[in-house]
């Protein structure tokens, strides 16, 4: 340690430590502000809070509209993430196993990332009106699969690189069909990557506002959209409490999944 990393008291080391700290502070400060604000006692958002209370959490959980939006967002996120991950796994498998055409195919699969989300929303608005699925849960799921699939695909493709083709071939030689090989060998090896892809997709879906602005119907208002519209009329810390709930939800999903599956470390077990 001491040999390779240099003197820990040197100005360079101290400077680097301070910089690292600042970057982390920069990244985490907004979250901290929201979390603190959620416990604000006052009627209006102000920082720092004058007094602490749980009243805005109570208000949030007591509000039927917020609750229905929360469930909708959760449902939507889980379904979209599951579909995206499944499709991403198939795409990842194909990309990892095909040679020359894979670069352009991959670009194609990641295409939704390159289009501004607002334009995707507008496009879906027009397309869904034509297909007659505007405002429906089906339409929302389709839209969310569209925007989350690139993330899931990307993660799975990276995970697939860790799978040696010969390992799958060994399974085939021992009597496994293609499907058995995928189920018994490929999926267990890439399950960390699959889980990471799933969580990425879930987070993207759960925090989307652009698609919701365009394709939500009166019966399908997602939580971010509900908060967005709420904030236009109301400046109470309820929004912060709702955000805090989201943050806690996402963090717990990541922690539980990480504990169960070992995120983004393809191939590692136990």
């Amino acid at each position: 340690m001491s040999g390779g990393t240099g003197n820990r008291r040197s100005p360079a080391w101290i400077g680097l430590s301070v910089l690292t700290g600042l970057v982390f502070a920069f990244l985490l400060a907004p979250i901290a502000v929201v979390l603190i604000e959620a416990f604000n006692d006052s009627e209006l958002m102000n920082f720092p809070p004058q007094g602490l209370s749980l009243r805005w959490f109570q208000a949030f959980f007591a509000n039927a509209e917020f609750m229905s939006s929360l469930w909708l967002s959760l449902k939507l996120g889980l379904i979209a993430a599951a579909i995206s991950t499944a499709l991403g796994a198939m795409a990842g498998l194909a990309l990892a196993r095909s040679g020359s055409s894979s670069a352009s195919l991959q670009t194609l699969l990641l295409a939704p990332l390159y289009v501004p989300r607002v334009l995707v929303g507008l496009a879906l608005l027009l397309a869904f009106a034509w297909l007659n699925v505007s405002g429906s849960l089906l339409g929302m799921i389709l839209g969310h699969v569209l925007i989350t699939m690139p993330y899931a695909t990307r993660t799975v493709v990276v995970g697939m690189r860790a799978v040696e083709p010969s390992v799958e071939e060994a399974a085939r030689m021992l009597g496994a069909t293609r499907w058995q090989t995928f189920r018994l060998v490929t999926v267990p090896i890439i399950r960390g990557a699959l889980m990471s892809g799933f969580i990425f997709a879930l987070i993207i879906s759960f925090s989307d506002i652009y698609l919701a602005l365009f394709i939500s119907g009166p019966q399908s208002i997602t939580l971010p959209l509900r908060l967005f519209t709420f904030m236009e009329w109301d400046q109470s810390p309820l929004v912060a409490a709702a955000s805090a709930v989201q943050i806690v939800l996402i963090l717990s999903v990541i922690l539980v999944a990480g504990r169960l599956f070992g995120l983004s470390s393809p191939g590692s077990v136990e």
């Binding site: 390992v167 060994a170 030689m173 021992l174 009597g175 069909t177 267990p188 090896i189």
Partner: peptide, 29 residues
């Protein structure tokens, strides 16, 4: 198809199943 030929293969890079124990690797077939 490969899986119905009843052959075995030993690969240059061993090609063991990384998520299974030695016992389970051998028991796979």
């Amino acid at each position: 198809p490969v899986e119905r030929r009843g052959l075995s293969m030993v690969f240059q890079n061993y090609a063991l199943f990384p998520h299974l124990s030695v016992f389970e690797n051998v028991a796979f077939g």
